[in-house]
């Protein structure tokens, strides 16, 4: 009620901008608490406690970088990082390529565009748990794809990615791409729709082929869309957890362990909180490394956020 008094007296000016508006501040308390206590406070707390020797309960017994040394000496962590690297690079490249190709196909003024788009996007509505379990079944060596192809007469056919330590990450990749490419396709399609028709006319006049026009003209024009997609894909990759738990459980052995799973295992199963905190701080660092160049590219040049 206090806020309502001012503009009544001077409706022509806009003085309320600088005025203290109590009600808006009260209404923003949940947001302020979330931002300060959970996001800033929680992150700072975890980073701080990653320098302690906490095991079952958080303790302030400072051990310096011990947890980090132990982390980088741990085979399991190294495997996790490598796995995420393989998965991440493949996923980034393939998601962008498939997403863009599908979007470009849909943008060719084709029939049944809505139907195709619906088909490509529906897996995105499903959870990683459902995705992982569905693909676990399809890739089941005894009853799934492999046995079907063998049943067709190709007796030596072998396609058993999720039970082979060397290829298990690709088994996850098949499922991950199935779930996630639809989203990138949608974003790319929105980007393509934003491109002026005249560009195409100009390319046709100049006699440039369709594929070449995409590569030489359209893709460079869509740089912001690609960067946004990359950031989205990358932040999704770092979070990779549910899919692994559902599809492989981290196995066979440790062959499909990922950092996010390492954190959860150490915090909530192995009761080694310090390790969990150190590992999650490393995850935070990787996000920061990705985000800073992006934020610089995105917001560095202009003032508006």
């Amino acid at each position: 009620m206090t806020v309502a008094s001012d503009p009544q007296t001077q409706p022509a000016k806009r003085p309320h901008r600088l005025f203290k508006n109590l009600m808006a501040k009260l209404a923003s308390i949940p947001m302020i608490l979330t931002a300060l206590v959970v996001f800033v406070g929680g992150t700072a707390w975890t980073v701080t406690y990653s320098f302690t020797g906490s095991r079952m309960l958080p303790k302030t017994k400072w051990v310096g970088f011990d947890q980090y040394e132990r982390l980088w000496e741990s085979d399991r962590w190294i495997i996790s990082i490598k796995n995420l690297g393989i998965y991440g690079i493949c996923s980034m490249i393939l998601t962008l390529v498939i997403g863009f190709t599908l979007a470009a196909c849909l943008d060719r003024k084709i029939r049944f565009e809505a139907a195709f788009r619906t088909i490509f996007l529906y897996p995105f509505a499903l959870s990683f748990v459902v995705t992982g379990l569905a693909w676990q079944w399809i890739l089941n060596p005894d009853f799934g794809l492999q046995s079907v192809v063998r049943g067709w007469g190709w007796e030596t056919f072998s396609f058993n990615p999720i039970n082979d330590p060397d290829t298990v990450m690709f088994g996850l990749l098949i499922a991950g791409l199935w779930q996630g490419t639809g989203l990138i396709m949608c974003i790319m399609l929105a980007g393509l729709r934003g491109i002026d028709e005249d560009i195409w006319k100009a390319a046709r006049v100049d006699g440039i082929g369709t594929v070449k026009t995409y590569v030489v003209v359209i893709i460079p024009m869509m740089r912001p869309v690609f960067i946004t997609s990359l950031v989205l894909i990358a932040s999704g990759i770092i979070k990779l957890y549910d899919l692994v738990v559902a599809q492989t459980g981290g196995g066979p052995g440790l062959a499909s362990e990922v950092p996010a799973k390492y954190v959860i295992e150490f915090m909530f199963r192995a009761q080694n909180l310090g390790q969990g905190f150190a590992a999650s701080t490393m995850m935070l660092c990787s996000v920061v490394i990705i985000l800073i160049p992006w934020a610089y590219l995105e917001f560095g040049g202009r003032k508006r956020g």
Binding site: A24, S28, M31, I32, T34, A35, L36, V38, F39, V40, G41, G42, T43, W45, T46, V47, Y49, P58, S235, I238, K239, A260, V263, I264, M267, L273, G276, F277, A279, S280, T281, M283, L284, V287, L291, G305
Partner: peptide, 24 residues
């Protein structure tokens, strides 16, 4: 300060959940 809180909120969306799990 409202924009500051909002910016923190948006940056927070990119922080891996694992970093905030235990404090919560």
């Amino acid at each position: 300060g409202s924009e500051v809180f909002f910016t923190i909120l948006i940056i927070g969306a990119f922080i891996p959940y694992q970093t905030m799990l235990y404090p919560i």
